[in-house]
Design a protein around this nucleic acid. Structure first.
Lengths: 223, 223
DNA sequence: CCACACCTTCACACTTTGTCCACAACTCCC
DNA sequence: GGGAGTTGTGGACAAAGTGTGAAGGTGTGG
């Protein structure tokens, strides 16, 4: 099996280093992110097999990270909660965390949980491909077929398409797409979304994406 | 959120009890059925939000239960398979199961799966649609149908309609509409509301919006 | 260093929409 | 019935939004 990649999201340097060291000793390739935006970016870039995620983070918190990550792609998440707070825990599970550890925790326990997480992930038949009408999106291979014909998409186009496909038929405002796909806070004055929609239409057919004037775009799916 | 109802279908008493106990601890209301016919009946009576379903059952098996249930109503199903048998698994997914667990499984894992199932269900079951008589307003898609026929509305027309639909039959003064829909403080001297009402009447029928002389407009709904 | 793929921005044409205006039709009240 | 105020209507016009092709910039891999 190829080396498994783990993303550790933790702003306290000493903890992050300790966790990373232990996981490396277990044979994982470990990346560290120290805040919310960094985590999102790292997920896109590194495509980790699992995430160890602190709930308390600068930028936006771990729950937000978890929600956004899960919106894109199914990745096992182990949550670290500082306090013995049931609220965090429940919210965490609700936004897609798979397991949790309450600080302080032992490194041995952490390692065991991460192993369990990955074992489960490989056993489970996670839906790796989205099927919407004659559109087929393979998330693990990042391939897209329309009516059986493969289209070559750029990375950004693919991410945009996946986001639209996550809420088929729903109208997603440009600001929302810019925030979720690009991670931009400010949506004023840019035509980037429009440009990429143009690309998707050219490659996948003009009828795939509906423009909702003054609002945004929606993925059309035959019912 | 109201308490979520889970139906556990499992003929082995000890397993059924253990599963039920754990799910109750997670805050769910749990019902147990021990065979196929009992499961079908329980689904009809209890209207559960999700089903945890053993494949091996007396009466008729879990796959049959799954098939029948899905034929009636879309309910998330978590399948429990005794053996590590791919055949059962594939059939299960084919007849509408959403996820599965192979025995033996941990209760923690089960709970996480059920949470995930419900989370997914609430996301997909979100076509927030307003229905008022023969008028159908889909908020996430921003589509409007009158008597089954779609009408293309401009952004402002749509927002105005939604505001009227939010208080059906109530008379909303122009000043109120201008404040809520347009964000204008000053209502003097403008006929903007009237213009957009004109548009709505043209596209959706003159009988939809009632004029209250000297006051404003109200959405008419057949009782 | 070059070729290449990609992302973003820009300028322009085109489409859609919002607001206002003028006049007709209507309502209400005396 | 008549008049004042209100509303309906069609269209003009400007403003805003969108589609499109191409250019500039960045980064990557050879």
């Amino acid at each position: 099996m190829a080396e498994r990649r783990i993303l550790v999201v933790e702003d306290e340097g000493t903890i992050a280093e300790a966790v990373a060291a232990r996981l490396r000793a277990e044979g994982f390739a470990v990346q560290i992110a120290v805040d919310g935006p960094g985590a999102i970016e790292a997920v896109r870039r590194e495509l980790p097999d699992a995430i160890v995620l602190d709930v308390m983070l600068p930028g936006f918190d771990g729950l937000e990270v978890c929600r956004r990550v899960q919106a894109e792609r199914r990745i096992p998440v182990l949550m670290l909660t500082a306090r013995d707070d049931e609220t965090d825990l429940l919210i965490g599970l609700a936004v897609g965390a798979d397991d949790y550890l309450t600080k302080p925790f032992s490194m041995r326990e952490l390692a065991a949980r991460v192993h369990a997480l990955l074992r489960r992930a490989t056993i489970t038949a996670e839906p790796t491909t989205l099927r919407l009408g004659d559109l087929e999106i393979n998330l693990t291979e990042r391939r897209v077929l329309r009516a059986g014909v493969e289209a070559h998409l750029t990375p950004t186009e693919f991410d945009l398409l996946v986001h639209l496909a996550g809420r088929p038929r729903a109208v997603l405002p440009r600001e929302r797409l810019l925030a979720d796909v690009w991670g931009w806070a400010d949506a004023s004055g840019t035509r980037t979304v429009d440009s990429h929609v143009k690309g998707l239409r050219r490659k996948l057919g003009a009828d795939l994406i509906r423009t909702v004037h003054g609002v945004g775009y929606a993925l059309e799916v035959a019912r």
